[in-house]
Design a protein around this nucleic acid. Structure first.
Lengths: 116, 116
DNA sequence: CGTCATACATAAGTGTCTTATGTATACGCG
DNA sequence: CGCGTATACATAAGACACTTATGTATGACG
């Protein structure tokens, strides 16, 4: 949409990945592509952020991975939400929405008189 | 509101400070208090985050500071938006809202079939 | 006169991002 | 057949902005 891709705020990538995997198993490249496409090219996930993030999620037990070979013969590591991960996804999405709501409260708040 | 204060996402503090100073000059402690109060105690700004952030904003030329002594005799460093800072505030608020909108697009997007 | 709220400051540690670099395969095209 | 592009993964180095911990100091209140 915009001319320049938006810079990711640190700590906000995991929920995007989790939500994406909520639609079904996918490999890293496909996750990245889905986020880019569904954001209308506003979000470009760098590989240097994506793969470490997938590792972290796997270490937390929220996703599981396995190597697969597609019909075309290409190898790819396919990620899938675990049961814990699916619950975490819902919690993380809710946490993000809470964050947004809290910010809206502060940004919209109007003081009576001086705040100092 | 919640039992535990929300953890700040990195990179999201500046816009809160700028918006707060948009209501008028204030010293650090008052900025922190205003953010806490207007967020209904959800956001607690740590001093280790606040003062470095104010320094950054001053180095960018978005805020200016001066030492003042209140009627009670206490010294405090009072911050105020510069003209550039006031424009930056509007841009930063808009950038945050854009970020939220982009995230909503991704989180709400529904694939047709598999994304992989 | 002790404790709490106010007020500022900085160092050390942490985590997650960007940038840069490397490897390797499939596919279309001329 | 050779070449560029898209696909696919991985990691190191660096930057940056938080948290945690610590320190100093004053005013107000009981």
């Amino acid at each position: 949409m915009s001319d320049t891709p938006i810079r990711l705020l640190k700590g906000t990538l995991d929920v995007l990945i989790l939500r994406t995997l909520g639609w079904g198993p996918a490999h890293g490249y496909a996750i990245s592509r889905w986020i880019r496409q569904s954001s209308d090219d506003d979000l470009q996930i760098e590989e240097g952020a994506l793969y470490p993030a997938l590792r972290r999620l796997e270490e937390k037990g929220w996703v599981a991975s396995r190597w697969e070979t597609s019909e075309s013969g290409r190898d790819a590591r396919v990620y899938d939400l675990t049961d814990v991960g699916r619950r975490a996804m819902r919690l993380e999405v809710a946490a993000w929405q809470r964050y947004v709501a809290v910010f809206a409260r502060v940004l919209d708040a109007r003081p009576r008189g001086s705040i100092a």
